[in-house]
Design a protein around this nucleic acid. Structure first.
Length: 563
DNA sequence: GGACGGTGAAACTTCAGGTTGCCTC
DNA sequence: GAAGTTTCACCGTCC
């Protein structure tokens, strides 16, 4: 292969797509670091891999090996993505995108800052927010796929990326390189991105869901209550300054106030608006009022679903599907072409049974398929499918899965709160249990085991399979047996803490006098219910106290602000 | 002649992001 | 628009 021809002109180097490897190697050979920006996750991984392959020798091999191991062990068992990243890390090259877990991202970021990692190939995640400067920035793609085909990224974003070059206080210069294919393209890029004007920042206040949320929270905090205060507030926003059309904004605001009233989140008297107790809670939960209303409207039906003697896994699926339909779960997992048939038949089999019925005027069919795919993924998580299997089956990544799980957990929490407010204690307990299952990704039968410190879904399943099903089983079982199941280190820790035997100088000591620091609790199925009951009772008590105080304050005619 | 494996061209598919929200120990 | 993946036709080899 010929050497790359690199022509320097202004701030742009003309080269070919393949030559980013040479550009990178040139820089790291001088002991400096490189950031490479790509337009897709796949591409950022492939780029990091290509660079890693081209690197023949690394400094700090031992430290990189340790880091590579940490990356690999950040998920148990490691996924394909973990293995790919760990392999790249051995050469000091890494990729960074939303598919990485939080832990992996932090490891990549901190070790790039410390200088151990020399190259990060990333999607635009790194351009915004994170302060990770490097001597050289390579913008491999300045176009990105959108609904209208490949489009130039915004000038502002280009500047964000290019602006990562140079490390203030450490170096006096930095270099940004953008890869183009022709002289004409080079001219266009210089004109648009280097000398062109960045886009104006526009207010999104008038976007209805946003406006609805903020309006409710402003009223709930008693920041604006009267019609005049509301008008005055919006008159002074960036939106009003930019668009000037206040009448249209006021029209929207008062239409939304009407909706919030219908939802019973606010009430009004003589053009004075106050949030109801429910409205305040919705605002505190930071939940979109439409979602809150959607939850509340369907509470009875959901409660019915679980009031039977025994509920089925299909009932749980219905609940998952119901929550998945909340706007906060958007964007949902995309349905691939090869999966369309699966979801079409799923919809024809189960569509009518779901709590949320399909309305073609509200949602398109593709999105409907996505609600089922997302529900399937969440369902697989709580029946203990491994992350690797889930990622492989649904073509997704651990990072995206975690993100969706945390969103889902928050929505379940909101649902649980509404159940409590409506005194549906049985239903609220059930959601609490489901939240434990989502937190750990486990079936109901091992909930009690994952409540023990140091026991996650993998170890809990191993214990359960070995007939060690409860806290007292752990206490009763011999250290040797425990060691066989979950390994020496964890077994020792558990026995030291909770067992009637502990390990000293590699010898098992039997005792009943060792001071135990019990950080764990035995929780059987029945006990989970009981604990939840106690907890609910306690919360109910607290809630009643708050209400009493609130009434007292209100009767004293003092402005009560629910913080 | 049929089964199998390797190869390469053509057709098809996919493509970024990730706050905050809550609770408890 | 580009890169990656899948599909398919074709060819050579082996039994």
């Amino acid at each position: 292969m010929n050497n790359p021809k690199i022509i320097e002109s202004n701030q742009i180097l003309r080269t070919t797509k393949e030559n980013f490897v040479d550009l990178t190697l040139n820089t790291i050979n001088k002991g400096k670091q490189v950031l490479i920006f790509n337009n897709s996750k796949n591409s950022s991984e492939a780029t990091a891999e290509k660079v890693a392959i081209a690197i023949k020798r690394v400094e700090n091999g031992k430290e990189l090996e340790i880091l590579s191991n940490k990356i690999l062990k950040s998920l148990s068992p490691p996924t394909k993505q973990c293995r790919r990243l760990a392999k790249c890390i051995l050469k000091g090259s890494a990729f960074h995108h939303s598919g990485l877990t939080g832990k992996q991202r932090t490891l990549v970021e901190t070790n790039f800052k410390s200088g151990l990692i020399k190259i990060i190939s990333s999607t635009p995640t790194l351009a915004a927010g994170l302060n990770l400067p490097a001597y050289k920035v390579i913008i491999k793609d300045y176009k990105r796929f959108s609904n209208r085909g490949m489009q130039d990224i915004p000038v502002l974003e280009f500047h964000q990326m290019a602006g990562r070059a140079g490390r203030p206080g450490k170096e006096t210069t930095g270099r940004s390189v953008v890869l183009v294919k022709s002289e004409d393209e080079k001219k266009r890029v210089i004109k648009k991105f280097i000398f062109g004007k960045p886009e104006e920042i526009l207010s999104k206040l008038a976007v209805e869901p946003t406006l609805k949320m903020y309006l409710l929270s402003l009223i709930a905090m008693d920041m604006i209550n009267s019609k005049d205060e509301i008008k005055d507030f919006f008159k002074n926003t960036l939106y009003a300054k930019q668009y000037g059309d206040l009448e249209e904004l006021y029209y929207k605001v008062f239409k939304i106030l009407q909706t919030l009233k219908t939802y019973k989140f606010i009430d009004s008297q003589d053009d004075y608006y106050r949030a109801t107790r429910l409205g305040k809670r919705v605002s505190e939960l930071y939940l979109n009022p439409d979602t809150a209303n959607y939850f509340l409207e369907n509470m009875e039906e959901l409660k019915e679903l679980f009031s039977k003697e025994r509920y089925s896994s299909l009932d749980t699926y219905k609940l998952i599907h119901f929550v998945t339909n909340a706007i906060e779960m958007r964007p949902l997992f995309r349905v691939l072409k090869s999966e369309e048939d699966i979801y079409m038949s799923k919809i024809s089999d189960l569509g009518d049974e779901m709590v949320t019925k399909y309305d073609p005027f509200e949602m398109d069919y593709r999105e409907l398929m996505q609600t089922f795919k997302t529900s399937d993924i969440l369902q697989d998580w709580i029946i203990e499918k491994s992350e690797d299997d889930i990622c492989e089956k649904y073509k997704t990544t651990p990072g995206e899965l975690n993100y969706k799980l945390s969103n889902f957990d928050w929505l379940l929490y909101c649902l649980e709160q509404f159940a409590q407010l409506q005194k549906m204690h049985f239903f609220s307990n059930l959601i609490k249990k489901l939240r434990i299952r989502f937190k750990h990704g486990v079936k109901e039968e091992i909930i009690s085991l994952v409540s023990i410190k140091g026991i996650g879904r993998v170890r809990a399943r191993k214990l359960f399979t070995a007939s060690i099903k409860t806290y007292s089983d752990i206490k009763k079982v011999s250290y040797r047996k425990l060691e066989e199941v979950i390994g020496k280190a964890v077994a020792k820790k558990l026995k030291d803490e909770i067992g009637n035997e502990y390990v000293e100088n590699d010898k098992i000591v039997y005792t009943s006098s060792k001071p135990t620091q019990i950080k764990v609790r035995e929780v059987s199925h029945e006990e989970v219910d009981e604990m939840v009951q106690v907890h609910v009772g306690y919360q109910k008590e607290q809630h009643e106290q708050i209400i009493k105080q609130e009434d007292k304050i209100e009767t004293q005619n003092t402005l009560f602000r629910f913080m």
